[in-house]
Amino acid sequence: MASSTEDPAFAFTTHTSVEAFSVSPPVFLDCYFPLPGSSDTSRPPAPVFLATGAIVFDRPLPNNNFHPGSAGVDVSASAGALHEALTPNPNSDSAKPPRVLLIQRAAHDSMPLRWETPGGGCDDDDISILHSCARELFEEAGLHATTLGPVVRVGSVSSSEGIHGGESTKKQAHEWGEDMGGQFFRTRRGKLVCKFYFVAGVPEARTAEVVVDPKEHVGYVWVTEEEVRQKKVQGEEGGLDLEFTTQAQWEVILTAFHLWHA
């Protein structure tokens, strides 16, 4: 897939809260994490990787606050694209609960057949972290985000997969996460990652156009908050059980639904 620096299709309008993420991944690391070898202990250690996740609802987030653009964000798409993203479909049933997009990991991959939101690692040549999110959404689900934000702020540390160290280190990481919204975890090889989740707006007319990459995912489903809580999709023959990649992933999705209702 082409990176966001090469593909003009990654054009979106941003939420007012995501200005800090309008810079490239290397610049973000320099701004918000101590340099290697630094004695600065006021912030958590710099991760080896940055990653993003896209929370996609089947309709626009109510009362969202967008602006025409921010530093490093391509807003060459016309205002009509934003209007399309924010205007409810008159044929939709507003009484129905909102649903969020989940994709199922391939059987040959790690955490086989588990469910997650679209997302992945940031590339150094991505124009911004927001572009990383838009690129990953397209690569994993075939959808183009027309809006990005707000940040879905989530817990940053767990004893099993986050920052390892003394209570002071964990407290600093937690406070940093509360402020920036990043979630720390470690890969199977022990590499520290900080992941940011953003609500990614996709026009309602486009939500039926999900296409997953069979090398990475084998299916997708749109689920309600109650189905996420119960970890089961009703209506399927015998129902569809939802085993999420991690407990943290499950919590992120529920936090996003809380944003919807706020």
Rank of each mutant, 00 (worst) to 15 (best):
A2S: 14
S3H: 14
P8L: 09
A9F: 06
A9S: 15
A9W: 05
A9G: 12
F10P: 06
F10H: 15
F10G: 07
A11S: 15
T13N: 06
T16R: 14
E19S: 13
E19D: 14
A20N: 11
A20R: 15
F21N: 06
S22Y: 01
S22F: 02
V23Q: 05
S24T: 11
P25F: 04
P26K: 08
P26W: 10
V27S: 06
D30L: 10
C31S: 15
Y32E: 07
P34I: 07
L35S: 15
G37H: 04
G37N: 02
S39P: 02
S39D: 15
D40E: 13
T41G: 06
S42A: 11
P44G: 10
V48M: 11
G53I: 00
F57T: 07
R59N: 03
P60E: 05
P60M: 03
N63K: 12
N65P: 01
F66P: 04
F66R: 10
G69K: 02
S70H: 11
S70D: 14
A71P: 03
V73I: 15
V75L: 00
A77W: 08
G80E: 01
L82E: 03
T87Y: 02
S94I: 12
P98E: 04
P98I: 05
V100A: 14
L102M: 04
A106D: 13
D109S: 15
S110Y: 13
S110F: 10
M111T: 13
W115I: 07
T117Q: 08
T117G: 04
G119E: 00
G120N: 03
G121E: 10
D123A: 14
D124L: 08
D126G: 05
L130K: 02
S132Q: 07
S132F: 08
C133K: 00
A134R: 02
A141E: 00
L143V: 09
L148F: 09
G149R: 04
G149S: 09
P150A: 10
S158N: 12
S158T: 15
S159F: 09
S159L: 13
E161A: 11
E161P: 00
G162D: 02
G165W: 03
G166W: 02
E167K: 12
E167L: 11
Q172W: 03
E175L: 11
W176E: 10
G177V: 05
G181F: 05
Q183R: 14
T187H: 05
T187E: 07
R188L: 12
K191I: 01
V193H: 13
V193Y: 07
C194W: 09
K195T: 10
Y197E: 14
Y197C: 14
F198E: 03
A200W: 06
A200C: 15
P203A: 14
P203F: 12
P203Y: 11
E204P: 01
E204L: 01
T207A: 07
V210P: 01
D213C: 12
K215C: 07
H217P: 06
V218T: 15
G219M: 05
Y220C: 05
V221H: 01
V223A: 13
V223C: 10
K231M: 05
K231I: 00
V233T: 02
Q234A: 12
G235L: 08
E236T: 13
D241P: 07
T245I: 10
T245K: 04
E251D: 13
L254Y: 04
T255W: 01
T255P: 03
A256G: 03
L259Y: 08
W260L: 06
H261P: 00
